[in-house]
Design a binder for these strands. Structure first.
Lengths: 149, 149
DNA sequence: ATTTCTGCAAATGCTTTGCATTGCA
DNA sequence: TGCAATGCAAAGCATTTGCAGAAAT
């Protein structure tokens, strides 16, 4: 198994502290943070870190396939170091994004090689899939019932 | 069956030519246009139409449930008057969005009442689902093979 | 007559870009 | 040393907002 450094060097991409730091944050969380959140979390340890660098870094990591980008639609993309296909639940009240392990659709999709089937039937060459569930998380459901809104 | 006018009036939302025009464009296409595209298409017949009005209108139509919003992630949301759940294929080369009728997942999801199951198992209250396939459409696959890029 | 909507322009917020400086290889 | 990456500030887009005039009920 390759380390992240090896993966980057193999693609002639330089290994920098900023890149390692961004990746390490994503690797250690299940919160699917936005660029802004990553930046805020990095600041204490990397005071010179620039927001633009975080943007550029997630772009690099995404292209290399080390992370995936989620587009839940609240203005602001989210990032996830778990690159194996899995579905996500987005809370329209608090904005949190959770993995939805109960839905095995994407895994089954891959196991049954349904992408090949789609390619044959439609001519559309699928490179990735996203499955999003929108609604209210348990916490917000509780508090919302008390609020007028 | 209610007409669009009746649906709007029932919710105390005023029926205006702009709203009817936007809805009519979405009703008559399968191209999942962006706000900008809708605006461009409207301009010849409604020279005074403002882009901001199109934004406000899709918002109203969305809230009333007459259209749905797609977030394929190319900067710019897309709109669809077909509100029954169905999956979409997004071409990363030309940006087109097609319905993917071959994938019956969302329909099955509804038929089998899997939303209730998710609610019970996770406490997450799902109000809508989106299933996106990213890749290359047949046309772009052909032309891309000739280009360097 | 009231209330809501429209159209315009300015403002906002996320993201990208240009460029001088820095730092990895 | 040479080329790529960083950091900063400015620019770019999609979208939202405020408000005066217009239109729907």
């Amino acid at each position: 198994m390759q380390t992240i450094e090896e993966i980057l060097r193999a693609k002639k991409i330089k290994v920098t502290p900023q890149r390692m730091a961004v990746y390490s944050i994503l690797k250690d969380t299940k919160s699917h943070p936005s660029v802004e959140k990553i930046y805020q979390q990095l600041k204490p340890n990397y005071p010179a870190m620039s927001l633009a660098t975080v943007y550029k870094t997630v772009d690099v990591l995404k292209k290399v396939g080390l992370i995936q980008e989620l587009n839940v639609g609240d203005g602001g993309l989210r990032y996830d170091a778990a690159v194996k296909p899995h579905s996500h639940a987005y809370c329209e009240s608090c904005g949190r994004v959770d993995d939805l392990e109960q839905v095995r659709f994407l895994e089954e999709f891959r196991e049954e090689n349904l992408l090949e089937k789609i390619k044959k039937e439609t001519g559309f060459d699928v490179s990735s899939i996203q499955l999003y569930f929108y609604g209210l998380c348990p916490q917000c459901k509780k508090s919302n019932s008390k609020v007028v809104s």
